[in-house]
Simulated scan of single mutants.
Amino acid sequence: MDLVSVAAIADNRVIGDNGELPWPSIPADKQQYRELIADDPVILGRVTYESMLDDLPGAAQIVLSRSEQEFDVSTAHHASGVDDAVAVAENLGADTAYVIGGAVIYELFQPHIDRMVLSRVHSEYEGDAFYPEWDGEQWALDSTTEYDRFRLEEWVRIDDE
């Protein structure tokens, strides 16, 4: 299973402010993000899931929550932790699952992910949610694509073996 963290982050690692994006909407980023994750399951926290109910991303949503719960959406599945979320994705027949937030979920999955696809939004913003720091010696920048207001970076974990 390939675990990929996908996030839009400001130069100061801010990813959110009071449950919202801290920068004005960037349509090109939203489009590439939705296209990237469209055909695979996404792993997200309950609050992030609830904030996206009107336009759910991914082919299925694996919602991490401390309490077992049922969802009114047929594509939504509960998971209690990292191993459970991976097992749900594998049971769905997925080769790849995308970790899409929020901050606690990114932090929880950081030691387990294989790749990061980061939209690096130009500038610093005020916020209360941050993308976790990572050890630069464990990661290699694989590709970059420049856009008008952001740079798309793909990072791959360096295999120690």
Rank of each mutant, 00 (worst) to 15 (best):
A94Q: 10
A87C: 07
A76N: 13
V63C: 02
S67E: 08
A103I: 10
H78A: 03
S80E: 14
D40F: 12
Q61M: 14
I62Q: 02
A85E: 06
I105T: 14
H78P: 09
H77G: 02
T96W: 08
T48R: 01
V86T: 10
D95Y: 13
I43G: 08
V47P: 04
I43D: 14
R46S: 01
E50W: 00
T48Q: 01
G101L: 12
V82I: 15
T96E: 07
D40S: 15
V99K: 01
F71P: 05
A38V: 05
I62A: 00
V99F: 02
T75R: 12
V73F: 04
P57T: 12
D54F: 09
R46D: 01
D72I: 09
V88P: 02
G101P: 13
E50V: 07
Y98Q: 03
L64M: 04
I62W: 03
A97C: 10
D55A: 06
Y106R: 00
I43M: 12
S74F: 14
E90K: 01
P57G: 06
R46C: 01
G101I: 11
A38S: 05
S65W: 13
A87L: 10
Y49H: 13
Y98F: 07
H77N: 04
D55S: 06
L56Y: 11
G81Q: 06
R46L: 02
H77Q: 04
D72T: 10
V104G: 06
A103T: 09
A60S: 09
H78I: 10
R66V: 04
D40I: 11
A79V: 04
R66S: 02
R46M: 00
